[in-house]
């Protein structure tokens, strides 16, 4: 078996005095899709933020290896350049900066890091068009300011488009399904599925099982009170859906 892309060991993190992650352990191998489920406030989005390097969170214990490197000592942009991508739950708007400009800046930073020549305007345009087709996004997006005036669904689709452009090794989807209607959900999921490959892993964070009908995970984890309390196959998600989170809460209390 290949070496894991992501190894999280006993990860503890807090915001202010509030400890949110209390010993997360997780190993993801290349090509795998892991789903992280859990009730509100269980620490799902915190896990995503800590992995991406958001400053508001303080890691108090544990370690995270990304492709064997200590992820926690890298700046957010270095993590991105190493191939970690976060699809934001709430993508921000950047007034006046077109999606094309933004992505060209980002992509060429990544290429520089990998020792590649920057793409010229023509190559970049071609790549954008090709990837837009792959994730079924309207090229009109290119010239619009990043996320400015986008609907909730458009913002999420733009995140997947960026994923397609930047080709990360690990993509974390932070509640990408929230606020999407069924059609938008399907478009987003199709985009993700088109991007699945033996070298690329996904961490799909979601509250609902619904998304997992479209993006079928290899492993499902249940995060509760800052810990993974149960892991299983995709059937675990269905079981959760049927029995509700109270079921795992009971489970957690028994094993605590």
């Amino acid at each position: 078996m290949k070496a894991p892309i992501l190894e999280i060991r006993n990860l503890h993190a807090r915001v202010g005095d509030n400890e949110i992650l209390r010993g997360v352990d997780l190993v993801v191998y290349p090509g795998e899709v892991h789903a992280i489920m859990g009730p509100n406030g269980s620490g799902k989005s915190t896990l995503a933020a800590v992995l991406a390097g958001r400053e508001d969170y303080e890691v108090t214990d544990g370690e995270v290896l990304f492709d064997g490197k200590n992820l926690l000592e890298l700046d957010p942009e270095e993590r991105a350049r190493e191939g970690l991508f976060l699809a934001f739950q709430y993508p921000v708007e950047i007034p006046g900066v077109s999606t094309a400009t933004f992505l060209k800046t980002a992509l060429n930073e990544l290429r520089k890091h990998r020792g590649l020549q920057p793409l010229d305007a023509m190559e970049f345009m071609n790549l954008m068009q090709q990837r837009a087709a792959l994730v079924k996004i309207d090229p009109a997006f290119f010239t619009r300011s990043v996320n400015e005036g986008f609907s909730g669904g458009e913002k999420k689709r733009n995140e997947i488009f960026q994923l397609a452009m930047l080709e990360p090794r690990l993509a974390i989807l932070d509640e990408t399904d929230s606020g999407l209607d069924i059609d938008a959900l399907r478009i987003v999921a199709d985009g993700v599925n088109a991007l699945r490959s033996p070298d690329r892993s996904f961490l799909v964070i979601t509250h609902y099982q619904r998304l997992l009908n479209y993006i079928v995970p290899d492993v499902v984890h249940v995060l509760y009170r800052g810990r993974i309390i149960k892991s299983g196959t995709k059937d675990l998600a269905l079981e959760l859906e049927a029995k509700g989170y109270d079921w795992v809460k009971e489970f957690a209390e028994v094993t605590a």
């Binding site: 991406a52 390097g53 958001r54 400053e55 700046d75 957010p76 942009e77 993590r79 991105a80 350049r81 991508f85 976060l86 934001f88 993508p91 921000v92 950047i94 933004f102 992505l103 800046t105 980002a106 930073e109 990544l110 890091h113 960026q162 930047l166």
Partner: peptide, 9 residues
């Protein structure tokens, strides 16, 4: 942070 996360310093 959003820009950083896309690899832009």
């Amino acid at each position: 942070f959003y820009c950083n996360q896309r690899g832009i310093d």
